[in-house]
């Protein structure tokens, strides 16, 4: 391939909305992070994406990324789920472990997923976390510790049954999810 562009410093390309027709990109298998043969403690993570009026966002794209277990040919660490008519997303994956927090006294972060939400009406994707942990691990998590105590629950999934974790994302309202600038 011939390229003639110069290599010079520049500023980032602007984000634009994923829009309502991103489903051309959708491959439903991507919601299953075990599809390449990963083994381990299989869990499901699911929930709903809701707008400021409490209505389901039925055209959203939810992505998760987990740094643990380490990415490999059999474990992508990454998943994507379209929301359905009820605004519901769902993933099947391997339970993440704790990961280190550099520069914070070598503390450890509780098991979590990084979550990205794209949708019509979002010009820049929203970034948040979904913790899949309970008890002391949460209390000692350095990122969760930065969140106002009354809003921490918006980042913590509920264990509905063994291996079945649930977390809803609220764009606005009393239960508005804590979104990050990274």
């Amino acid at each position: 391939m011939t390229t003639t562009s110069q290599t010079t410093a520049s500023q980032t390309t602007a984000s634009q909305t994923i829009g309502p027709f991103w489903h051309l990109l959708e491959d439903k298998s991507w919601a299953d992070l075990t599809r390449f043969g990963a083994v381990g403690e299989v869990i499901s993570v699911s929930g709903r994406v809701l707008d400021g009026g409490g209505a389901p966002m039925s055209d959203a794209c939810v992505e998760i990324w987990q740094a643990s277990p380490t990415r490999s040919d059999v474990f992508p660490g990454f998943g994507r789920s379209a929301t359905d008519a009820q605004g519901r997303y769902a993933f099947k994956t391997i339970m993440p472990g704790a990961v280190p927090m550099v520069g914070a006294g070598n503390s450890w972060q509780a098991p979590h997923f990084a979550v990205t939400i794209f949708a019509r009406g979002l010009l820049f994707h929203l970034m948040t976390r979904c913790y899949v942990a309970e008890g002391a691990a949460l209390a000692e998590d350095p990122v969760l510790g930065m969140v106002a105590p009354e809003r921490r629950a918006t980042l913590v999934a509920r264990c509905r049954a063994p291996g079945d974790w649930v977390l809803d994302f609220h764009m606005q309202g009393a239960l508005e999810t804590v979104f990050f600038e990274i």
Partner: peptide, 9 residues
């Protein structure tokens, strides 16, 4: 938005 440090994640 809450600014958080960039960790391994």
């Amino acid at each position: 938005l809450l600014r958080i440090p960039q960790s391994v994640t």
